[in-house]
């Protein structure tokens, strides 16, 4: 669970940081919120990271006249680039790159179908359904002699 020290404002900013770091225009907010909550859970187990997280989020909010969450996407991205390589942002990116792209809703948005064993694999569900190229041969006759 998250720490009581982290405010709703922190979380709000964090969700926007996650979006600014991995901006998919077609994604709804849910996956970003889940990814942010995973970062918060992680910080709950690591006091040093929690401290860095609170400081980093507070700093981001102070970069412009309005809080980070209210910045245009382009400006938010530029502000975030200023934090590239800091332990704060590196830890967020390392966590989010795993949780965001392991989220079944994201898989669906990207067109990925996920686990398949229980459905009998893709043997009868299109493992070879690509039809915009001719069917290639699968063997070559002579062995390479080189």
């Amino acid at each position: 669970m998250g720490s009581t020290l982290l405010t709703a404002q922190h979380r709000q900013t964090l969700v926007n940081v996650v979006y600014a770091a991995f901006p998919h225009r077609t994604f709804p907010r849910g996956p970003y919120e889940r990814a942010a909550d995973a970062v918060i859970d992680q910080a709950g187990k690591d006091p040093r990271f929690l401290a860095q997280l609170m400081q980093g989020l507070t700093d981001l909010d102070a970069q412009r006249d309005v809080p980070f969450a209210e910045l245009d996407a382009d400006v938010a991205a530029a502000v975030l680039r200023g934090a590239d390589g800091t332990p704060f942002l590196t830890a967020i990116v390392d966590s989010v790159v795993v949780t965001l792209y392991s989220d079944p809703e994201v898989w669906e948005l990207l067109g990925y179908e996920g686990p398949s064993f229980d459905k009998g694999g893709y043997l009868h569900r299109g493992f070879d359904d690509l039809d915009w190229l001719p069917d290639p041969r699968i063997e070559h006759e002579e062995e390479m002699t080189a």
């Binding site: 770091a21 991995f22 901006p23 975030l80 680039r81 790159v97 898989w107």
Partner: peptide
């Protein structure tokens, strides 16, 4: 690779549009 490993390995440590554009083309 699935999206999870692709995102991690395609440009380790990197983030931003260069990464998300590639993932948007996953299919």
């Amino acid at each position: 690779l699935g999206p999870a490993f692709l995102a991690k390995f395609i440009a380790p440590g990197r983030w931003g549009e260069p990464v998300t554009e590639l993932l948007d083309g996953y299919r």
